[in-house]
Design a protein around this nucleic acid. Structure first.
Lengths: 228, 228
DNA sequence: GGCTCATTAATTGTCGACACTTTTTGTGAT
DNA sequence: ATCACAAAAAGTGTCGACAATTAATGAGCC
């Protein structure tokens, strides 16, 4: 039940890989504040490496939209905003909808069966550990991840699993939004998978869009609640 | 009527910017063969710079899917394939369709008017220089570019204008596909823009998907013709 | 006191050199 | 001749230092 592997490189091989993972985690979880500026030298000192791997890692962070870089002026962590969240989820709806449609065509029967099994397993685990949100998050990630992989479209996979995933997670974490919606999400997952099993791409597409839209409004509500 | 500016940095400021542009052009136009391996040292010698900016440029080339990098083993130019083309255009259909839907909501009346004017201008230029494909290409790029910008969704803009654009262009160029389809494409452009002007996002979405699908089958036909 | 401009400090971009990994070459055995 | 294994060559990853650019500091003027 471990966190699924979202990158091709199994474990940190090189220095910059380690850095990347550390900084991804730090930014996503807010250890490095949103909007703050990151000095290359400071990071180099902090992690006991040269500036070269730091630059490499920063370039990759920019790639997954966690930092913004201005030439000759350095990088700063992105700032979260309702508009940003909306833009991000607009894309997710479209892309994951497409992923479902393709998965309904491309996934092997064995892959679908595996995923069904995994889903039931998550559900039982969830029932035991009621309210323990981490497992929900892990299960949710796992489900979406497998469907995206099932689309067999390498560009789509790269966008969702490498370029957009961490920012989505950052929004969720920093808005304290890994919350309830558990049983409902499970039901929605099951319906989506059933549509895929029936090779009904259109329906799977529609259901996934609704699923993500629901998640979006859920976060938006949370966001408004904090500001009132 | 110059090539529209697809990147935020107006002109090459830093060394790696220059390198990036040179290599993008070289790869897209086939000066550096698809599938060939690129040595950092060799590139450094060839462009009279150190390896540092070369690495920077290569990282950005990877970002727009023009090269693939294997840790500790170097980078090689991507290879073109019918499957790759299909995957790419599947995404484009979806993303540019979304761009149209958003543009229908977000574009200012003035922006739409400008684009209409530009389109007519392209058409007249095209009629004069019948068959001169470059102008067609430039006009096409320009049209799509403006609509994408009109979506006002920064992630969508980045994906289409920075990450996918050059690969799309590589497929078109290396398959000798900047060809006819001129007047028809213009008509399709006009219909799409009209739908946007009418604030009919649904229709603009549909028309754009068809427009791209037509372009795709056009390239596929070309590809099959070459192999017969 | 606030603004402009020159000077200083800090940060990024680039360079050449070294350490480690991968690939190639070459040697010997089956 | 083919294959396995070892040595060498090439290439990537990392390091520290210098050059160029940007941001910060302070003096002078209004």
């Amino acid at each position: 039940m471990s966190q699924p592997q979202l990158t091709n490189q199994p474990l940190a091989i090189t220095s910059s890989d380690r850095l990347l993972q550390e900084m991804q985690r730090a930014i996503v979880e807010g250890d490095i504040a949103a909007g703050s500026k990151m000095s290359e030298q400071e990071l180099a000192r902090r992690f006991n490496v040269s500036r070269a791997p730091v630059r490499e890692a920063l370039a990759r962070l920019e790639r997954c939209h966690l930092v913004e870089r201005i030439p000759n002026a350095g990088v700063r962590v992105v700032t979260l905003s309702p508009e940003g969240l909306l833009s991000l989820y607009q894309l997710r709806e479209e892309l994951e909808g497409l992923a479902c449609r393709l998965a309904a065509e491309q996934m092997a029967d064995s892959e679908i069966a595996e995923l069904q099994q995994l889903l039931e397993q998550h559900l039982s685990t969830q029932r035991v550990k009621e309210g323990e949100s981490y497992y929900q998050e892990a299960g949710d990630v796992d489900f979406h991840y497998r469907i995206i992989q099932g689309s067999k479209n390498p560009y789509l996979i790269n966008m969702l699993c490498n370029e957009l995933y961490y920012l989505v997670r950052m929004y969720r974490v920093q808005m304290g939004m890994i919350g309830p919606r558990v049983s409902r999400a499970f039901d929605e997952h099951r319906a989506i998978l059933q549509a895929i099993a029936n090779r009904d791409g259109e329906l799977a597409d529609l259901l996934m869009r609704r699923h993500i839209a629901a998640s979006k409004t859920n976060i938006e509500r949370q966001l408004l609640q904090e500001r009132k």
